[in-house]
Amino acid sequence: MQEHIRQLFSENIQTMIASGESLAEPLENAAFVMVNSLINGGKIICCGEGSTAALANHMSALLLDQFETERPCLPAFALQPHHAGLNYNPQRDSDYLARQIKALGQTDDVLFVISLTTAEPSLIKAVEAALTNDMKIIALTVDNSGELSGLLNQQDVELKVPPHRRARIFECYTFLIHSLCELTDMTLFPQ
């Protein structure tokens, strides 16, 4: 069992190293997109599907409250998951995130979308709605160039994690979220 435990750590480290090589510049760009939005009165709207919805909530909570240092609250929120509505029907209502973006999203806002497959219909429709609202998009994705990736344009930032087991991807996404919060704090509130 201890050998398996060491292998788990090794997998995590390998995923992080591979991601660090390819994501330094996109991570910096994503931080600038967030900072510019916040400076211009925008907000960060976070969303995910399934397990990544929890990461979206985590991201918005870190921005609203604080990451590691005391600072003013930053305008951010996570979109409500599909089960929040009484009349939710998965065959009919894959646009539940898009409807929230249409109602709440504005031009200076950023949609922070977290996808494990880049093929989730609700996330694709959310990105389409954000593009219609002239919002910028930061997407955490797996490097497999799915439909969601194809919707992004030059003003948007995609943070592509190398494909590994879902647990390693989730761990890397959490690290990227923490890094973005730290970079945002460091830029807006230098010590």
Rank of each mutant, 00 (worst) to 15 (best):
S10T: 06
E11C: 10
T15C: 13
I17S: 06
A18T: 10
A18K: 11
G20R: 11
E21F: 00
L27R: 06
E28W: 05
N29L: 12
F32H: 11
N36T: 00
L38V: 03
I45W: 08
L62Q: 08
E70V: 15
E70M: 13
H82A: 15
H82N: 11
H83K: 02
L97G: 15
A98S: 13
A98Y: 04
A98N: 04
L104Q: 12
G105H: 02
G105Q: 02
G105P: 03
Q106A: 10
F112H: 13
F112Q: 11
V113G: 00
I114Y: 07
S115G: 13
A119S: 15
E120L: 07
E120I: 11
P121W: 01
L123H: 01
A126R: 06
A129P: 07
L131T: 05
V142D: 00
D143G: 09
N144E: 12
G146T: 01
L148V: 06
S149P: 00
S149R: 04
Q154M: 14
K160E: 05
V161I: 14
H164I: 00
H164R: 07
R165K: 15
R165T: 05
R168Y: 05
I169S: 03
E171P: 02
F175T: 03
L176R: 02
L180F: 08
T184C: 10
T187H: 13
P190S: 04
Q191T: 14
